[in-house]
Design a protein around this nucleic acid. Sequence first.
DNA 1: CAGAAATTTGACCAGTTGGAAAAAACGTTA
DNA 2: TAACGTTTTTTCCAACTGGTCAAATTTCTG
Lengths: 229, 229
Amino acid sequence: MPPIKVKMLETEGGKGGAKAAPSKRPRAQTRIQREKQEVILEAALDVFSREGFRGATIDQIAEAAGMSKPNLLYYFPRKEEIYQRLLAEMLDIWLAPLREIDSVGDPIPELRSYLRRKLEMSRDYPRQSRLFANEMLQGAPRVLEMLETDLKALVDEKAKVMEGWMDAGKIVRTDPYHLIFSIWATTQHYADFDVQVRAVLGKDRGGEGRFEDAARFLENLFLHGLLPK
Amino acid sequence: MPPIKVKMLETEGGKGGAKAAPSKRPRAQTRIQREKQEVILEAALDVFSREGFRGATIDQIAEAAGMSKPNLLYYFPRKEEIYQRLLAEMLDIWLAPLREIDSVGDPIPELRSYLRRKLEMSRDYPRQSRLFANEMLQGAPRVLEMLETDLKALVDEKAKVMEGWMDAGKIVRTDPYHLIFSIWATTQHYADFDVQVRAVLGKDRGGEGRFEDAARFLENLFLHGLLPK
DNA sequence: CAGAAATTTGACCAGTTGGAAAAAACGTTA
DNA sequence: TAACGTTTTTTCCAACTGGTCAAATTTCTG
C-alpha cells in the first residue's frame, strides 16, 4: 500500500520560488528554502487548523511565520498549495496506525495498540487532526476522491482482518466498519473538541492527565463495555 | 436548569429591522419578518456549517436565501448576529437529550435511549452538529464561558447520576466524564464526518441504512464491548 | 383607496484579500 | 571582490468583504 497522496499542483520541490526558471533543470533546494518552508508550514498549520481554508488569510500565516506576505508567497506562490501540502502530509501520518494493524497478531493487543496509538496522535498532533476535521466539515472537496478510493480500500482490507478475528471467535461478531469509525471518533474527539473536553473537566482534571484517563477508559469500554459481568 | 443561552447582542426580536425606532415600544413582528428570518436562518445554517464563521460570506447566505445582501441585512444587521442565533438555538436542542437522562430510571434503558437520541440528532440535524464542531475547532471563542459554566454544571450533575448507577452495581465502575465524551464523539461523528463515513461505506452501504447499522453497533459496543464472554 | 409603515433595491464605500511586479538587499563562490 | 543567483521589501492592483444610505416599491390599515 503506497502512501496516500492528495492530487496536487506539483509543489515543484526546489527551484527557488515562483518565478519559473525557463527550461534549465531545477536546482537543489538551499538551506534557507528548507528552513523557511518549514517555518511557513508550521505557521500555516496553526492558522488553517483553526480557521479552515477560506477563513485563513495569507497575512495571518505570514505574520505567524514572522515574515512579509510577499516573502511568504515567494516560497509558496498559492495559498492553496500550502493547504494541500499540509493535508497530504497529515493523511500520511494519520493513517499509519491503521496500516500497521497486523492480521497475524493477536486481536486484543492489536486493537489495544491501535487505540493507544490513535489517542497518542490526538495528543501529539492535535492541529493536524483539526485540519482534517475542518476539511471534512466542508465536505472534503479536496480529498473526497482519495477517501473513496485509497481510504476505502485500506479500511476494506482491515475490516476483512477483523472479520477473520470474529470468525476465529477472538472478538465478538460485530460491524468492523462501525468499529473503526468508533475508534476514530473517540480518539480524535480529544483533539478536535479539546476546548470542550478541558472546559467540562475543569482546571483540576483538564490537565495533561486527561489522556491517561481517556486511554484507560477507552480500553475498558472497547474490551468490556458497561455491563457488569 | 434553564435553557442555555449564548451571551448575545440582543437580537431585538421584532421592531421591523435595523433602523432603530426612537423610543416607542417595539411593534409586533409581521408575517413577512417571521418568514424571511426563517429563510435566512435556514440558509445561514447551510453556509456557516460548511465554511465556519470567517469562511462564510453574507453574499453566499443572501444568495442561498434568495434575496439581495442589503435585504438580508435589513433583517439581521450583523453577520455575527445570525451566527450567534444559530449557535444558541443549536445548543438548546443539542443538549436536550442529556438533560433528560433520569436518575430514577433504570440505567440500561436510560443509556440506550440517550445513545439512540443523540444518534437521531446526528441524522436529523447534521448541519447544526457541524456548526457546533466548527465553533469548537476555532477554540469556541463565543461559547467558551458557557461551556465552563452551564455545560460543565450539567455534565457534573449527570456524572453524579452515573456514579450512583455504579454504586448500585448496575453498570461497571468507570469514568463518567469520558463515558459522556465517548457517546458524544461516536454519535456526532456520523454528522460531522458524514462524507468520510459515506465514502468508506461505499454506495451500497452508505445509504440511509447506515444509521440503523450504527445504532446497533454502538448499543452493542457500549453494553458488551468486543471481548466474547 | 389614501396614507403610513414595511420591504426591497441599487449605488456606494472603506477595509481586506490573494497575488503580481520590480527593484533593492543579501550571500556565495569563482 | 565582482558577478550572479537568492532572498526580501516596497508598491501596487483588482476582486471581494461587511456594511450604509437614500430612493423606490410593496403591503397593511383605517
